[in-house]
Design a protein around this nucleic acid. Structure first.
Length: 900
DNA sequence: TGGCCGTACTG
DNA sequence: CAGTAC
DNA sequence: GCCA
């Protein structure tokens, strides 16, 4: 192979292959010694972890007990990971959910005959849950298309089949095939029928019947619908009963499309945004894409978004923040003279009911950031801080700064600490820059605000990297602790805390418009497939993340160019291609490449196809080549081209592409967990909940300690199939149970009762020894996982959900794998890798792994003894961490390393 | 120019 | 092994 | 697509 030449080079410009080889060499040399030590270390570690773990459990038990007493505010929001598919979700830890575990155990011991009560079930669950909480809910496809047809593909046979067929390893699938092409008109009635079938708890098929009964027992589905019980205190709208569907956009869309599902409920949407009727101004950085995003989010929450201003109906006008500084633009927009864009809708809509110079009275005009904030938090936040105060004929700058001031004031008084407050401070910069660019502001004020921006950035105009420390960095340092005093100046001035940031948790929507478009671009790249498409996707996505986290609102391509020149670290990930797109974005408001791709009808098809599970880029292309152009086509003439799984997913397509409210995810989790407990008392399903809506539910199951070998999983799946809960199986891995091994089920389920949709569910079993790895893995983000694994790799370790092992490799090929480190908690994995612990909320999104490899220079706990880490390796590691959150300390470190 | 996470099922 | 998924 |  072409491997030989590189072996001889050792410079720092070596490609990664050499790195690995070199590491191999080092490792080989050290292997013997290391292996011994590793064994010892492992043993030590195990003892210690056990000790610590025991302690931890005591701690968490008490903590959880507190939670049970109602002090559940520890249910922090974890901005979730981006799943490998598209989309991101937010997870929430759910101590509050514990309350119903008590119920669960009671239910079990009372209801099920097999319910040998565990000594103190509640405490036990509390323990287990708190050490290992984790239901992940992935958002399957964020912008799934609306179903073309809203027939739920589940006929009565479907139910039967689900009840019995799946058990026979989906032998009933052929029914599915036959049923697939069912003409839509028939499907409508079928679907109604199926409702009634369900309503009567399974008229056909005794198995299904008892199944439903059983589930009802478990769920305590009384006439009163005790599901609110499951929902727990954290769930926002307990009054939504068995109709999980939200209205909003989707409803709207489907309404126009022969929506005949009776389950649509009675309109009255009760989402966080119900009652909101927003008029979005298509100006400035609020692009089509932004509007789309807003629309989706708000509509999901029960609100309404339009570009049309309707007097009497519109509750808020949402406009780009920079318009506060160039008010006449907005004015013109509404008066119809703005010559805005050709956007028919926008202009036409905007003109309605408004005359020149007449700003709608009484309707608050707020910045788009308000909306972003609302969407992020899933609540309607106060508009005060986001008002774009309209002083049409006064000096615009005043408007801008007073708005900013109001923002700062308001925000700093919220309990949301600096990270939120940070959002306010950056705005003046944005406004100033925008205004300056637009030339609408007098010079004096412009400079004033520019000065403010510089202050905000905490340094002199050309401040050194160290001085340009932004508040976010402070925050992140605070998280790590110990760096607070590094730059005292920063701490003194309040506004220095206002920088936006690189920080995740409630990452503010800086540059979100550009970022959104880049993300769209990323998706389209992925859809198109072909060579390297996944990497292109990643590249664009990464760039989007970099922009979002940049901390400053970019309004002008030059800013980025300057950054690239002077602080390249901050914009690492923005390469030539992305810059090119961004240039046109900032100059003309669009990205040609995106426009091009979005206009491509073929890509639309491919995208639609890929929304069906188990249809990827390759299969989609094949389908297209076969002349298939729609899901209809797929159903009628393309079935034979699809894999078994894809066919199943296609059958349930309309259901499983609907996102579900998280309360429903909780219900699903509850069923799985409780059934698991009825089989194996003490077995613990744990979970992290997704945000308001999510695409699927993952339930991780683990056995009670000391009963590692109880075959919970196989029985569990069997039982769930028997009860009709699981309707389809997609894949089943690792069955039958083998001691010490994990098992996994992927499939489709449906809660009993009327009007339920089929949902994607993954159920996974991990033995205690692997559970921490599984939690780590499922907590994500995917980026975080990748980077953590990369990190492990350059240390000669291999990390996966199956453990953390030292491996010997030859030419990159694994030749030997040592037993896994024993890590009973996530923390242990970090420690074993020599990484600082990171909260799940800090692992989100693109930015992933800013774990602190810095400073330690290999001086981590293990590095000196077990893991040979050279400085060079560390440097190479730095290179690998493309997605680094660029913390100030990291800059400094990088600089140090470069100097050395 | 080569590398970009690790694992598992399905066909 | 390729494709797909998590 | 980005990076070394």
């Amino acid at each position: 192979m072409a491997s030989s030449p590189s072996v001889y080079h050792q410079g720092k410009h070596n490609p990664f292959t050499q790195r690995f080889r070199k590491i191999d060499a080092i490792r080989t040399a050290l292997r013997t010694a290391v292996a011994e030590e590793l064994a010892q270390q492992t043993e030590e570690r195990r003892r210690e972890t056990h000790r610590v773990n025991a302690e931890n459990k005591r701690r968490s038990a008490t903590a959880a007990a507190a939670a049970l007493d109602g002090k559940t505010d520890s249910s922090g929001i974890f901005p979730g990971r981006d799943s490998d598919g598209y989309g991101s979700e937010v997870s929430i830890s759910v101590p509050c959910r514990l309350g119903c575990d008590g119920t669960a155990s009671r239910t079990r011991s009372a209801g099920s005959s097999g319910g040998r009560a565990v000594s103190r079930p509640r405490d036990r669950l509390v323990e287990l849950l708190s050490t290992a909480a984790c239901v992940k809910q992935a958002s399957a496809s964020p912008d799934k298309a609306f179903g073309w047809r809203v027939d739920s593909g589940d006929g009565p046979e479907g139910e039967q089949e689900g009840a019995s067929g799946v058990a026979s390893t989906c032998g009933g699938r052929r029914d599915g095939h036959d049923r697939g092409p069912t003409p839509p008109p028939a499907a409508a009635s079928v679907s109604t029928e199926s409702q009634s079938v369900l309503a009567s708890a399974g008229a056909k098929g005794g198995g299904a019947k008892t199944g439903v009964r059983f589930l009802e027992d478990i769920l305590r589905l009384g006439p009163k619908g005790s599901r609110s019980n499951d929902a727990g205190g954290a769930l926002p709208n307990p009054k939504r009963k068995s109709h999980p569907r939200r209205g909003g956009c989707k409803g709207e869309a489907s309404r126009t499309q022969t929506h005949k599902k009776p389950r649509q409920g009675t309109g009255a949407v009760s989402g966080p945004f119900s009652g909101l009727s927003l008029c979005v101004v298509h100006l400035g950085s609020v692009t089509n894409n932004t509007i789309k995003t807003f629309k989706r989010g708000v509509c999901d929450g029960g609100g309404h978004v339009s570009m049309r201003f309707t007097p009497g109906d519109t509750t808020h006008i949402v406009a780009d923040a920079s318009l506060a500084a160039s008010w006449e633009k907005l004015d013109n927009y509404f008066s119809g003279w703005g010559g805005v864009d050709d956007l028919d809708d926008a202009v036409n809509g905007g003109r309605v009911g408004l005359k020149s110079g007449m700003m709608p009275e009484g309707v608050p005009i707020v910045s788009n950031e308000w909306l972003s904030e609302c969407l992020r938090r899933s609540v309607v936040v106060a508009t005060d801080a986001y008002r774009l105060i309209p002083p049409p004929h006064r000096s615009a700058p005043v408007a801008a700064s007073s708005a900013a001031a109001a923002r700062q004031q308001q925000r700093s008084s919220t309990p949301d600490n600096q990270s939120i407050a940070a959002g306010g401070g950056i705005l003046p910069a944005a406004a100033a820059a925008a205004a300056a660019a637009a030339g609408h502001i007098g010079l004096a004020s412009s400079t004033r605000l520019t000065a403010a921006r510089n202050e905000v950035r905490g340094g002199s105009t050309q401040g050194t990297a160290g001085q340009s420390t932004v508040a976010a960095d402070l925050e992140s340092m605070a998280v790590k602790g110990g760096f607070g005093a590094r730059n005292p100046d920063v701490g003194k001035k309040r506004h220095t805390f206002h920088c936006q940031s690189t920080t995740n948790s409630r990452g503010h929507a800086v540059n979100s418009e550009a970022a959104d478009m880049l993300e769209d671009l990323a998706k389209l790249c992925a859809v198109r497939g072909g060579d390297g498409s996944v990497f292109k996707e990643r590249g664009f996505k990464n760039a989007a993340g970099v922009l979002k986290r940049l901390g400053v609102q970019i309004t002008n391509i030059q800013q980025l160019k300057d950054l690239r020149k002077h602080e390249p670290q901050r914009v690492r990930g923005l390469g030539d291609s992305v810059m090119k797109e961004l240039a046109t974005f900032y100059e003309e408001g669009r990205m040609y490449r995106l426009d091009e791709l979005e206009a491509d009808p073929k890509l639309k098809c491919l995208k639609i196809f890929q929304e069906v599970g188990w249809v990827g880029a390759v299969k989609a292309q094949q389908l297209y080549d076969q002349g298939i152009r729609s899901i209809e086509d797929l159903r009628t003439k393309g079935l034979h081209l699809l894999s078994e799984q894809a066919q199943i997913c296609l059958n349930r397509h309309e259901d499983i592409t609907q996102r579900m409210p998280r309360s429903e995810a909780a219900e699903i989790e509850a069923v799985v967990t409780r059934v698991a407990q009825s089989i194996c008392p003490g077995a613990c399903g744990s979970y992290r909940r997704g945000k308001s809506h999510c695409g699927d539910v993952d339930v991780l199951i683990r056995p009670p300690e000391g009963q590692e070998d109880s075959p919970v999983f196989d029985d569990l799946i069997k039982r769930l199939v028997e009860t009709g809960f699981i309707t389809d199986k997609l894949t089943l891995a690792g069955s039958p149970h083998k001691p010490g091994k994990s098992q996994s089920f992927m499939g489709i389920c449906k809660l009993p009762g009327k009007g339920r949709l089929h949902r994607r569910v993954d159920i996974k079993f991990y033995p205690t020894s692997l559970f921490a790895f599984a939690v780590l893995y499922f907590t994500g983000s995917s980026h975080f996982n990748r980077s953590m694994r990369s990190f492990a790799k350059i240390k000669g370790l291999k990390l996966s959900d199956k453990g953390l092992c030292r491996v010997n490799t030859v030419n990159g090929e694994e030749v030997h794998r040592f037993p896994s480190y024993s890590c009973l908690r996530e923390e242990d994995v970090f420690t074993a890798l020599g990484l600082e612990w990171r909260e799940p909320k800090d692992r989100d999104g693109v930015q992933v792994q800013a774990f602190c490899s810095k400073g330690e220079g290999g001086a981590t706990e293990l590095s000196g003894r077990v893991v040979p880490v050279t400085l060079e390796q560390e440097q190479q590691h730095q290179a690998l961490l493309e997605q680094d959150r660029l913390e100030a300390s990291d800059y400094e470190d990088a600089e140090l390393q470069q100097q050395e």
